[in-house]
């Protein structure tokens, strides 16, 4: 039980952010026309590539002077994260571009 209290107290700011972000996420999405569901899902998917920051930090903290499994996996994490971010935003833009073409 004490562990839980310690966990909550140490991370109280993050937990506040989480609680409020949940409401924010729900609010923002609730009134979306179904036309935009696919681009929205794709855009949200790109934002979830924010894990790339974690990848950068991970490799940044790893010793790169010697070859290790950790380094290889870390670089893979950065690569995958980049794919998610760049591919995600690019594809969302491609979808939305078509909505603009009105004659």
């Amino acid at each position: 039980m004490n562990d839980l209290f310690i966990f909550f107290y140490s991370y109280r700011e993050a937990i506040f952010i989480i609680a409020l972000s949940v409401f924010l996420g729900i609010e923002v999405i609730s009134n979306v026309p179904s036309v935009l569901h696919t681009p929205l899902m794709s855009g949200a998917n790109a934002i979830s590539g924010v894990i790339i920051i974690g990848g950068i930090i991970l490799v940044g903290n790893t010793d790169v002077t010697r070859f290790s499994l950790e380094l290889v996996l870390g670089i893979l994490a950065v690569f995958f994260g980049t794919l998610n971010v760049v591919g995600g935003f690019a594809v969302t833009d491609r979808m939305l571009e078509m909505f603009k073409k009105k004659k």
């Binding site: 996420g25 999405i29 609730s30 979306v32 899902m41 949200a44 979830s48 924010v50 974690g54």
Partner: peptide, 17 residues
């Protein structure tokens, strides 16, 4: 905090979707 907010925000938005 950027990762926490971005992640949870998308998580919530995705769940509602």
């Amino acid at each position: 905090l950027a990762m926490i907010l971005g992640g949870i925000f998308v998580g919530a938005a995705g769940s509602i979707l």
